[in-house]
């Protein structure tokens, strides 16, 4: 109840709907008049919106000194994790789940553990995270896949997809199932998608992975069509990174390991989370 009241307090339209810089100025004046944990938290939120992470972190620390709140703990943990300060971020995450053992806080703790490279801990925390949330299943499946348990990941994703019908879960399930070597029921889905999609490269690449050894001729055609489609859509100097991942996969499966590696490097340079190019990364790690 206390946390709910605090949440409502945070929702108070303290500064109306000003520009962010003006809100910072208004909050700074308010802090000078009568400092409080809530005001420091609100200013930290505005600093974060302005990408001034250093100031946001300072304000959150002061806010927590004045009064410990779940919102400030979560925000500080996330910011520190972004900056690679994993140990402190994890400590804050643990504190958060003790103070407010809500499922979403365990999801955050799982993310922090994953970010820190502690996948077993992340898997442990995910058991208490919201089970209806796509992001929980996607992170869970990713962690399982990273440890090579594709079959378990595929099973988890298939079940989750049956609940929400989310297309993201469905595609992730297909990817995990292909990695697990489980082809049952997948080919008809891919054939249907390829026949009915305006852009079919991502599904053709999945079909190529599925039929790589079984049907080389069809695989070759799928990959050639995929690369043609992707290159027509990719703006070379300002690419859609989701397509770069697809192209990397198509290039790798076509045997052009060098170009695939170049696409992987591009994704890494843009500081995307490793989960967004996990498949390409795994394939390139293979001999």
């Amino acid at each position: 109840m206390r946390s709910f009241i605090f949440f409502l307090l945070l929702c108070l339209p303290l500064c109306g709907h000003n520009d962010v810089t003006e809100e910072v100025a208004t909050l700074t004046e308010a802090i000078e008049r009568d400092p409080s944990a809530e005001l420091y938290y609100r200013r930290a939120v505005e600093f974060r919106a302005l990408r001034e992470k250093g100031h946001a972190i300072s304000d959150l620390r002061v806010s927590l000194q004045l009064e410990v709140s779940p919102a400030a703990l979560a925000a500080l943990a996330e910011l520190l994790s972004d900056q690679g300060k994993n140990e402190e971020a994890l400590q804050l995450g643990e504190r958060l789940t003790k103070l407010a053992p809500a499922p979403q806080n365990f999801f955050l703790l799982a993310q922090l553990a994953h970010q820190a490279g502690d996948h077993p801990a992340a898997l442990r925390h995910l058991r208490r995270a919201p089970q209806q949330k796509d992001a929980t299943h996607l992170l869970h499946a990713y962690l399982l896949s990273e440890s090579g348990d594709f079959r378990l990941a595929a099973g988890l994703l298939k079940k989750a997809h049956q609940n929400t019908e989310s297309i993201v879960l469905r595609n992730a399930w297909i990817d995990a199932a292909i990695s697990a070597g489980d082809r049952d029921g997948i080919l008809p889905i891919l054939d249907e998608e390829i026949a009915t999609s305006r852009y079919s490269a991502s599904h053709r690449i999945r079909r190529a992975r599925l039929l790589l050894e079984k049907d080389p001729k069809r695989t070759h055609r799928d990959l050639a069509l995929s690369l043609a489609e992707l290159n027509a859509r990719i703006k070379p100097d300002r690419p859609d990174l989701t397509l770069i991942n697809d192209r990397g996969l198509a290039l790798f499966l076509s045997g052009d390991r060098k170009s695939a590696l170049r696409d992987l490097r591009l994704l890494q340079e843009r500081s995307l989370p490793a989960s967004s190019y996990a498949q390409l990364s795994r394939l390139l790690r293979q001999k």
Binding site: A135, S166, V168, D240, L241, L272
Partner: peptide, 8 residues
Amino acid sequence: RPSGAMAQ
């Protein structure tokens, strides 16, 4: 981000 569920 491009890796997020919404972008996917």
